[in-house]
Design a binder for these strands. Structure first.
Length: 135
DNA sequence: TTAATGACCGTGT
DNA sequence: TACACGGCCATTA
């Protein structure tokens, strides 16, 4: 079969994980990697996105773990990502997605009540919208 | 082979 | 909120 290795399916899995982010929701690079079954490969996710050319890919829904856009403020990509997110009804201000902290906090609190999740420090609460974290 | 780089992450101060 | 530090990982120089 593969006389020479084909593109690692980790690539495919990461792209699938990105495509799986519902419209109007966002996820962090690390979160995407984890969902793709590749914990710790956040940088790989970033690299793939930087080389991606598929316009169908909802790359704009991927943010840094603190809810900020990964591009340098004011750059072209920064502007485009902001515009795309807003286009989906996501509130973005100053390169940062707003409305996550409250929502996430609420869900974390719920998790804690439901199955005794560990204490959430502000850091964790800031974690990017795992909006679809219900299971 | 080693060093630097990058759309990153989590913790600690 | 901001910055420093150490980790992680694939690609490039």
């Amino acid at each position: 079969m593969g006389t020479h290795a084909t593109k690692p399916d980790s690539t495919k899995r990461i792209l699938d994980a990105v495509r799986a982010i519902p419209k109007g929701q966002v996820a962090g690079y690390g979160e995407v990697a984890r969902r793709a079954g590749l914990p710790g490969r956040a940088r790989l996710v970033a690299r793939l996105l930087s080389q991606n050319e598929d316009r169908r890919l909802p790359w704009h829904r991927v943010l840094r773990s603190d809810g900020r856009i990964a591009f340098p403020e004011g750059s072209e990509g920064w502007h485009e990502q902001t515009a795309r997110l807003r286009g989906e009804g996501i509130l973005v201000e100053n390169g940062r997605v707003r409305g996550l902290r409250a929502a996430v906090t609420r869900e974390e609190a719920l998790d804690a009540e439901v199955w005794g999740a560990p204490p959430v420090s502000r850091k964790a609460a800031k974690a990017v919208g795992k909006s679809g974290r219900r299971r």
